[in-house]
Design a protein around this nucleic acid. Structure first.
Length: 509
RNA sequence: GGUCCCAUCGUCUAGGGGUUAGGACACCAGAUUUUCAUUCUGGUAACACGGGUUCGAUUCCCGUUGGGACUACCA
């Protein structure tokens, strides 16, 4: 097997889509598995779609996800530059070579003329109105113009493109690692523009040239590229690189959760889940799209989830660290069918990975959030809170959300709960309990429970009678973490204070 | 419209000529929990359809249907 060199090659037209993260991940897994090289190439040949900040965003996103780049933009390497806009001269050379050898030609057609061509072909009943072997001879290009005319136009600086001269009626064979053999007749391929009139190459030329020059061994990309793969094969052949052609693997698409179609930002917004790894503020609209990171997804959870969208190891194991994914990954086990994106599964992974953290790690999430609100909390207390909340959270932020009553005493109580259980006996027990708790030394959950049971039996009552009320009084909530543990964290002073407040506030009916 | 790709529970998927078609998420029920959550146990639920090939097809082949991608001087 030749040295594995793969690339992730996004264009900086906005934030990195979650599907792009998966593509990057699969590339990365293959590279690491074979001690190969992961390259980041920025495909910024469309100046009109360039979005400032997108490149940095892509790099940061990959970094957060744990996908490491060995070579490329922001990293350097022996095949630099890795930004296509900086490789203009290189593409020009190869385009020239194609023209010189008769595999490409200059075309001077205007947009209006192209439109006219399509209409004409349509009227003729041509099923696909393409600029190709059956129309190129009717157009204004170096195939129809004399050499002198062409040269004259070129010298005059007339706007022009370079088009690929696709061979007539030729079967193009392409082996895809995921889909097997694909055959397409060249008559279905149009004379694609290789060099645009602004002097920039199109994706097709730049991609092939760069993959060749950067010695890419495997092209792993989304299925949306499958239709143009035959064109790329033809390009490799015309450039004489058929023996160095990379292997192709076209990944199944990520589909929207309901209905059908490619997963889009719109769908994600509608269903209420992120589509981008990190927060992204659209510089054009100033609109903020919340990222997976900010919503509280752990990178290891997202990665595990993403890896299983279209790939699986064939065993029943579903929890995989990045390293385990690297060890197990094979292209052969990537599926062919598109995968609907189910955020529930991602949540489940997140919950799993969050729980695998120890109390001190969980505490630091809580502490961080508290700090933003200027709420003081000791490390010890935070860890205790983490301990009693750890089975109840799927996202780090929930630690703060669910622990509010530890920091703020409730001022209002749900009447429904109070009314149901409140009576003279309950009040009596509560008062007695409050007194005992106040006197207790080294109060902990166990002791709080013993005191409650003892107090109740001394009064000939049952602890169960007031538990619900006690919870409401102490936390302001009808449900929550273990009450005795909560009392331990609250401490004897705060606990008695809250009980007494309730006794004063709630009037017995 | 044309070209190409795809098709197992609601979802992600395993499997493969003869299986009680397996797992996970979700959902439902029961148990545990003084609550809720967790946890445990159990349950509902799938081979799109029609033809072949075959002793036998969900699996192989063809077709149909359905879905998707592409069809720009965007990637």
């Amino acid at each position: 097997m030749r040295e594995v060199r793969v690339r992730f090659a996004p264009s900086p037209t906005g934030a990195l889509h979650i599907g792009g993260v998966r593509t990057a991940l699969y590339n990365y897994l293959l590279a690491r598995k074979h001690n190969g090289t992961m390259i980041l190439r920025i495909e910024d040949t469309d100046q009109s779609r360039y979005v400032p900040g997108a490149e940095e965003y892509i790099i940061k996103s990959l970094e957060w996800a744990g996908i490491q780049i060995d070579e490329g933009v922001g990293k350097g390497g022996s095949h630099a530059p890795y930004r296509q806009s900086e490789r203009k001269e290189i593409y020009k050379q190869y385009a020239q070579k194609l023209v010189d050898e008769g595999n490409a030609y200059y075309a001077f057609d205007t947009e209006a003329e192209l439109e006219l061509m399509r209409e004409r072909l349509k009227a003729q009943g041509d099923p696909n109105q393409q600029y190709s072997s059956n129309s190129r001879l009717q157009m204004k290009n170096s195939l129809t113009l004399s050499e002198a005319e062409t040269q004259q136009k070129l010298n005059a600086g007339e706007p022009h493109v370079i088009r690929f001269k696709v061979p007539v009626n030729q079967e193009i064979y392409l082996t895809d690692l995921i889909r097997g053999e694909v055959v397409v007749n060249s008559s279905q391929v149009d004379d694609k523009v290789l060099m645009k009139s602004d002097g920039m190459p199109t994706y097709h030329l730049a991609n092939v040239v760069d993959d060749y020059l950067m010695k890419i061994s495997h092209v792993i990309r989304g299925e949306e590229w499958l239709p143009s793969a035959p064109l790329h094969v033809l390009l490799y052949q015309s450039l004489g690189w058929q023996n160095e052609m990379p292997q192709f693997a076209h990944l199944p698409l990520l589909l929207k959760p309901d209905g059908n179609g490619k997963l889009s930002k719109r769908d994600a917004d509608k269903m209420g889940f992120p589509i981008f790894p990190l927060n992204w503020k659209d510089p054009a609209t100033n609109e903020l799209a919340v990222g997976y990171k900010e919503v509280g997804y752990l990178p290891e959870a997202l990665i595990n989830f993403l890896a299983f969208l279209g790939w699986n190891p064939g065993t029943e194991k579903e929890i995989f660290s990045l390293q385990e994914l690297i060890d197990e990954f094979t292209i052969e086990r990537i599926g062919k069918a598109g995968a609907k994106f189910d955020i529930h599964k991602a949540q489940w992974y997140n919950q799993h990975y969050l729980r695998s953290k120890n109390n001190s790690e969980l505490a630091s999430y809580l502490l961080e959030d508290l700090k933003k609100e200027n709420i003081f909390c000791s490390q010890e207390k935070a860890e205790k809170i983490a301990h009693c909340l750890r089975e109840r959270v799927s996202f780090p932020q929930e630690l703060r959300l669910q622990s509010n009553f530890f920091f703020f005493a409730p001022t209002q109580f749900d009447e429904q709960v109070i009314l149901k259980k409140w009576n003279a006996d309950a009040a009596k027990l509560l008062l007695a309990y409050s007194t005992e708790i106040k006197a207790a030394k080294n109060l902990n959950a166990e002791l709080a429970k013993i005191i409650l049971d003892n107090t109740a039996s001394q009064l000939g009552l049952k602890a169960g009678q007031i538990l619900q009320v006690l919870r409401m009084i102490l936390t302001g909530q009808g449900s929550g973490p273990d009450l005795m543990l909560s009392i331990e964290i609250l401490g004897s002073e705060e606990t008695t204070k809250r009980i007494n407040y309730a006794l004063q506030t709630i009037t017995i009916k």
